[in-house]
């Protein structure tokens, strides 16, 4: 084990972690927007809209993330779309997260009792304002834990970027190992990958603590 290697490459790892954070934040935001939009569309009464939306969601959920990533990165040029590794990774995680998030949101909306809609209608509210003001808030609070689980997976999935050449944590580890074995001999894979596992583990703990705090906060404001 050779911990100096980690310290020597501190700045390199930090920059890589920065890329991981960028992928995570960007794709989480985009996924959230997609989840809300598609999750809502998947519950509309009109079958002509609902069915295609549900099929698209299902297809995106059923294919492995890495296949989706390769499709976007290697396949997109065929559609006239040339994406760099970073953009491709963010787009992949956004679409994947959006599809899985949409399924979570759909479940939440469907779990809101029907009479909520009917009683709001009897108050003379329009469909759209009923949906936004009455249904959505009730639908989203119970699905926060499931959504938090999704965010956890998205954080882990930033490592997929390595497979298309984003220098995020995993790729930075690979590079450090290659350099070390070229200049110093040996292969410090255990140390470097072990270090990266620990970084992800700690980041996960921090994020879970944050989510729990958020849940407590929301829980408090709902009870009164």
């Amino acid at each position: 084990m050779n911990f100096d290697l980690i310290l020597e490459n501190r700045d390199f790892f930090l920059r890589a972690a920065g890329y991981a954070v960028v992928i995570f934040v960007a794709s989480t935001m985009a996924a959230m927007a997609l989840s809300l939009a598609f999750g809502s569309l998947a519950t509309v009464r009109l079958k002509l809209i609902r069915m295609p939306v549900r099929i698209v969601i299902e297809v995106f959920r059923d294919i492995p993330q890495v296949v989706l990533l390769f499709f976007i990165f290697f396949g997109a040029p065929a559609f006239g779309l040339q994406l760099g590794p970073l953009q491709a990774t963010i787009l992949c995680l956004s679409l994947w997260g959006g599809a899985n998030g949409a399924e979570i949101v759909r479940g939440g909306i469907n779990a809101v009792p029907r009479h909520q809609f009917e009683s709001a209608r009897s108050l003379g509210l329009g469909s759209f304002s009923i949906f936004v003001a009455i249904i959505l808030p009730q639908a989203l609070r119970p699905v926060i834990p499931a959504y938090a689980g999704l965010c956890n997976i998205l954080m882990h999935s930033t490592s997929l970027g390595a497979l298309v050449g984003v220098v995020e944590l995993l790729k930075s580890g690979q590079i450090v190992i290659d350099r070390a074995s070229y200049y110093q001999g040996g292969s410090p894979g255990l140390t470097v990958y072990g270090f990266i596992l620990v970084v992800y583990f700690i980041a996960g703990l921090l994020m879970n603590a944050g989510i729990r705090g958020l849940e407590r906060h929301l829980g408090r404001s709902s009870k009164r």
Partner: peptide, 22 residues
């Protein structure tokens, strides 16, 4: 907890490229 809180891809690299070190 360790497995569930780290990416499988990193676990895979740790095992395949890391363990040969020992």
């Amino acid at each position: 907890s360790l497995i569930r809180n780290t990416p499988m891809l990193v676990q895979l690299f740790f095992f395949y490229f890391g363990l040969p070190e020992i």
